[in-house]
């Protein structure tokens, strides 16, 4: 059983993601955020439970649905919002946007917009861990849809073949955009795909942050101990559309209602209150504090300057040559 302080920390992080995402949706509606924006609302327990089982210097890598992982990794909410607003103060100086959040100081190697593209890269991070014989491990997040992509299989094969310390976490939210997993995957029980590579596969309730944390802690210990890679399937649900432009016609209302009853945040709130670790008032107070943080982030992003025009030409190469694009 986790200590109450740790449970409260998990609660706080999930709530931070939820409130920040609500502000993201709002700001998108106001036209302050553009492009593809994929919200993480509903899946908070996965990023928070899993990442909280890591050390600070372990590697984390992700997909375009990267807001939750960025924040769970401790990324700065202000730099996060500023990135979405395309501002100079954004974590990627406004060059990445929603899908390409990275925070290298926190060993968060961010978002790729190519489904499955991060999987061999995750294995490469794991290769570096083994090459240097350091104590680090890698956590790689992706969706159910990614598990049907060619490089996903290449990455898992490499990881097992070379005994790389990588935990592959599939956030099975049952849909890739509007296509149900039963229409896209030969195995709908994604964790069983692990057996094709001789690695252990686990299934967890991705709506229960304590379960995610418990299983991840176990798996982290094994993988750090040299057991090789593992696959975890966290079953979860995104409450919003695939992205901000999704009319959402492909899911039954009853199904959505069912999953809303499994919301990981009230679930942990109940555990906290029942355990005597919090009261309704103390959680409300926390919520107000987080709302203020989110508001501050929006304000910071609003007030931050646009990138300078010269920024267009910067950051492509470590060393520039006269033939490179310039003003």
């Amino acid at each position: 059983m986790l200590q109450s302080r740790e449970m409260l920390r998990l609660y706080r992080q999930m709530l931070l993601i939820r409130r920040m995402e609500e502000r993201v949706a709002e700001s998108y509606g106001e036209g302050k955020i553009g492009g593809f924006t994929h919200l993480y609302i509903g899946q908070e327990a996965v990023a928070v439970g899993a990442i909280s089982a890591l050390n600070f210097d372990d590697y984390v890598i992700d997909t375009y649905r990267d807001h939750g992982h960025f924040l769970a990794r401790g990324g700065d909410p202000k730099k996060f919002m500023a990135e979405l607003f395309g501002k100079q103060t954004g974590i990627c100086k406004g060059k990445g946007g929603s899908m390409h959040m990275a925070d290298v100081e926190r060993y968060f190697f961010g978002g790729t917009g190519i489904v499955g593209g991060s999987i061999p890269i995750a294995a490469g991070l794991g290769l570096a861990c083994n090459y240097r014989e350091d104590d680090r491990i890698v956590m790689s997040f992706f969706g159910d849809g990614a598990t049907n992509q060619g490089v996903w299989h290449e990455g898992l094969n490499f990881a097992k073949l070379w005994n790389l310390p990588v935990i592959f976490i599939c956030e099975n939210n049952f849909y890739g955009i509007g296509t149900g997993v039963q229409f896209s995957s030969s195995l709908t029980e994604v964790h069983k795909k692990a057996s094709g590579y001789g690695m252990p596969g686990y299934r967890v309730n991705g709506m229960d942050v304590l379960e995610v944390r418990r299983v991840c802690e176990e798996v982290v210990k094994l993988v750090r101990g040299g057991a090789g890679p593992a696959l975890i399937e966290a079953r979860c649900y995104r409450y919003q559309g695939h992205s901000m432009t999704d009319p959402g016609r492909y899911r039954a209302r009853a199904e959505e209602e069912l999953w809303r009853k499994r919301d990981p945040i009230p679930r942990l709130a109940k555990d906290l209150i029942d355990g005597g670790f919090a009261t309704e008032e103390s959680l409300l107070e926390l919520d107000r504090e987080i709302e203020a943080l989110a508001e501050e982030a929006v304000q910071y992003a609003d007030e931050s300057p646009d990138p300078a025009p010269e920024a267009l030409y910067e950051d492509m190469f470590a060393v520039r040559y006269p033939s490179d694009p310039h003003a």
Partner: peptide, 10 residues
């Protein structure tokens, strides 16, 4: 190539 990218990141 993907593994090379990851290794270089690290």
């Amino acid at each position: 190539v993907g593994l090379a990218v990851g290794a270089a990141m690290a």
